[in-house]
Amino acid sequence: MNVTPSVVASRGAPRATGRLARGALAGAAIAYVAILLLLPLIGIVAKAFAPGVSIVGDTLGRPEVRHAFLLTGIITAITIAVTTSFGLVVAWVLVRQRFLGRALMNAVVDLPFALSPVTVGLAAVLLFGTGGWFTDFFAAQGIQVLFALPSMVLVTIFICIPFTIRELVPVLEEFGLEEEDAARTLGASIWQTFRRVTLPNIRWALLYGIALTTARALGEIGAVLIVSGTISGKTETATIYIFSALEERLDAQAHVVALVLAATSILLLVGIEWLHRRNEQARSRT
């Protein structure tokens, strides 16, 4: 006789615990993101403005700070140009061509994710430093690689290689070949096909790749620190400036520079996301 109520009860119970479990899971996720991602950012903002707003103008007016930002900007710009153009080529080859060693190439592309930047910097020192494989060659050309811009750019590119490729490969795979074939039968050149058919379809993946690359290049320190020789006013990037400023107890200046770097990266990522959404909405309204 009591069978029916007990069935109802046993059905009700897991539902209640299910809701509880889902709530706990959501709470854990939010707490995790808030504590580990947002709190440090809030901390930087608070610390940067603690000595008063004038510290911002004061710090950004310093010649060594300006030079550090300029250097970071140059390195980032070159890195974006190289990783974007070669990233397109590598992603295209990985998706569209079948060749011996393709799987290996696919794995090698991710290598920078697995390596510590310090290791990358060390490798560059071994290649271009005293007794390195390429040292004599570049010395003969009169090009200073180590402790100068070339090695700093080189290690940053190395570290940023995977971002564009990893964004592009799945999108290119999904896009397929047929639309490109169609464009070519309609008389489009390879360049027209790329610009009018392929690019509009991989545009957002490419932009995300560039945004991630920018953020990573702006923030890189480990490898750059090792190859730069930290020559103040010469090979000091924004991140290296933060590092040295903290050592010299110029905490406020370090915080302001850190804030600028963080704000640039975040604005870039949020901005692209916003543009993408706006674009999707405009498209779905027609």
Binding site: E179, D181, A182, T185, G187, S189, V197
Partner: peptide
């Protein structure tokens, strides 16, 4: 590009 033939694909291949 030079052949100028019209091609219709099984899965349409519309842009």
């Amino acid at each position: 590009q030079e052949r100028a033939v019209g091609f219709v694909f099984q899965h349409y291949a519309l842009f």
